[in-house]
Amino acid sequence: MAVDSSPIGFEGYEKRLEIAFSVPSFFTDPSGLGLRALTRPQIDSFLDLAQCTIVSQLSNSEFDSYVLSESSLFIYPYKIVIKTCGTTKLLSSVPRIVELAGSLSLVACSVKYSRGNFIFPNHQPAPHRCFSDEVSVLNEYFNHLNPKAYIVGDPHSANGNWHIYSASNETVADDVVTVEMCMTGLDRKKAAVFYKKSGENGDSSGGAGEMTKMSGINDIIPGHVICDFEFDPCGYSMNGIEKSAHSTVHVTPEDGFSYASYEAMGFDPCSVRLEPLVKRVLKCFEPREFSVAVTCTGGTQWWATEEADVAGYSCEKQVVQELPGGGLLVYKTFSARSEECAVRTPRVKVTKRCWKDVVVAALEEVGA
C-alpha cells in the first residue's frame, strides 16, 4: 500500500465491508447487470466519501475488480465488497451505496463488516476509533437485518482481536468461503521486494509485475488473472480474478509497521484447501505473526474447521463463532516459534463474546 507522510507510519489493517442484495425480478433487472450498471462517476461518488480512488481495473463476465489507492473494490451484480486501509472513512460510503442500490431497485439482504486491531487506533477518524461506534453507524442502515456484532480472539494481544458485524434476514444458501489473512513483522528481505526501484535514468524498473513474480504472489492461486500496482516509494496491491472468485493482496513493507494482507473469496473449496493456501501465502512474506479468519456459508463449514499446521508457527488461539444467516467464522492467530521451542502451543478456545460485550471491549481499544 501507499505510505503517507504520517510520522507514526501507515495503517495497514483494512476495514472490509460486504453487502449482498436480493436478486430482483427479471422485469426489474432484465439485463441482470445489477450493481454492474453503475457508472464510473457513481462509483467514484461513494469512493470519494471513503477517501480513496481507483488506480487500476480488471473485469470478466462475472464481476468488476478495482485496485484502489487504499486497497480494493469488487462489484458483482448483486454484491459489493470494498476494503480500505490507512485512515480512510469506509463507513462514510454506506449511505451512498445504499442510495445507488435503491436506484436500481436492489434491497440489501446481508451485510458483513470486519477488521483486525488497528496498529494506530487513536489516529483513525470517527467512527472507526472504536467498534461500538462502527456498529452504531451500520445499525442505522441495517438494523432490520437482525445484526450481531462480535469481538473475538485474544484481548491481551495487541493485534489478536477480530471484529465482525454480521446481519442477514435469510439463510444464506450459497456455498461461499472467504479467507482473510493479516500478517505483521514481515521478513525484511521479503518486504524489500515491495520497494519501488529506479533504473539508471530514474525510470521505474520492473514495476508491479516484477514484484508479483519475485514475491511468489502469482503462485498462490495460479489460475487467477492478476491486476497489480506499485506505489511510490513503496507498497503494493493486487487483485486476482477467475470466474466468480477473487483474491487480493496489499503490502506495507516499511520496517517497524510492516504489514501484508491476503484475501480470497468464491474459489472452489474442493480444489483449494486451507493449509496449502496458508503456506503459499506465508512463503511470500514470512511474517512474525499472522491471523486467519475464515467465513463460510452454505455447506462449506467443513472447510473452515480443517487443520492448518504450519511449520515454524504456533497456533495461539482459535475461535469458532456462528453467524446470522447460517454462516460460520473460524478465527486463528499464529506466532513464529523460536528454534528452541519444539513443542506446539496448545490451542485455546476463547469464550465467544456477543454485542453486550462489544462496548467494553471497544473502549479498551482506545484506552478509555
Rank of each mutant, 00 (worst) to 15 (best):
M265D: 15
I119F: 04
E275Q: 13
R288V: 10
S215V: 05
A2T: 14
H123D: 07
S22M: 02
Q57E: 14
E254C: 11
S59F: 04
A191R: 05
G9K: 15
S6N: 10
Y313E: 01
Q301N: 12
Y259T: 14
L277H: 00
E307N: 13
M238N: 06
T305V: 10
L277D: 00
G235K: 03
K79F: 03
L138W: 02
A208W: 05
A264V: 15
K197L: 13
S338C: 04
A173H: 12
K189I: 02
A208T: 08
G240D: 08
C354A: 01
T84L: 02
S338K: 05
E242R: 07
A20R: 07
I226K: 12
S5G: 15
A260M: 12
G199P: 00
I217F: 04
S69Q: 12
D4T: 10
F46S: 00
C52K: 06
T333R: 06
V111P: 10
P95L: 01
P147W: 05
S105K: 07
E316C: 01
M181C: 13
Y150V: 00
H123W: 15
S22N: 02
E170H: 13
C52Q: 09
N159W: 07
G326H: 09
L17F: 08
P324M: 03
K83Q: 15
Y262I: 03
L328T: 07
V348M: 11
F194D: 03
D154R: 00
R344M: 09
M181L: 11
W302I: 01
E286V: 11
S136M: 09
L363V: 06
I97F: 05
C85Q: 01
G153Q: 06
M211G: 10
C52M: 08
I226A: 04
K189N: 06
A264G: 10
F21Y: 09
L274I: 06
A336R: 15
N139E: 13
S271H: 02
V225W: 06
A342V: 11
A304W: 03
T178H: 12
C227A: 13
S237R: 10
F290T: 13
W302H: 01
Q51M: 12
S25C: 03
T39K: 02
K283Y: 07
G367W: 03
P77E: 05
E230R: 14
T333W: 02
R347A: 02
L100R: 01
R337P: 04
S205W: 08
N218K: 08
S258Y: 09
E210L: 07
K89L: 15
V94H: 04
S103E: 07
Q42A: 08
A260P: 08
V320F: 15
S261C: 13
A208R: 09
K349E: 08
E99S: 05
